[in-house]
């Protein structure tokens, strides 16, 4: 009869269609949601900003391709700052408390390593989960 001359079981064309729709929706998800923090397990940092005494002496785009380090001159000696991919840390310091050394690696946007006597601030800027906190 006229109704059953149409396919009613799932055809191969249907399966291709299903695959097409699934891939379209998944790629749409990447396009639309890819830059939001929902997709990142931690807050990505985009830049490491190093300031001494309030002046920005260095801005490094994160994440870096390779592991490298540079030196900062402080009043008690030189500091070595090391970067590796998404992480940054102070690897050599001659200050009194060595707080900056003890902090180790930081990798998330908003984190910072601060040496108060030397007035060195290494801060990771980027997209964070919270934009501002009122107090």
């Amino acid at each position: 009869m006229s109704l059953l001359k149409h396919h009613t079981d799932m055809t191969r064309g249907d399966k291709y269609l299903l695959l097409l729709l699934l891939s379209v929706s998944f790629s749409l998800m990447f396009v639309l949601y890819g830059n939001t923090t929902i997709f990142h397990s931690k807050s990505r940092s985009t830049q490491a900003v190093v300031t001494v005494n309030g002046d920005i002496i260095r801005k490094i785009n994160m994440p870096t391709n390779s592991r490298y380090s540079f030196a900062i001159e402080g009043s008690s000696g030189s500091f070595r700052v090391e970067l590796d991919g998404e992480k940054i840390k102070v690897s050599e310091a001659h200050c009194a408390g060595q707080v900056c050394l003890n902090q180790g690696w930081i990798s998330r946007a908003g984190q910072s390593i601060i040496c108060i006597p030397e007035k060195i601030v290494i801060r990771l800027e980027g997209r964070t989960m919270l934009d501002a906190i009122t107090q």
């Binding site: 396919h7 009613t8 079981d9 064309g13």
Partner: peptide, 8 residues
Amino acid sequence: TKCFSTIG
């Protein structure tokens, strides 16, 4: 088209 079924 003739290649899609009711389900598709």
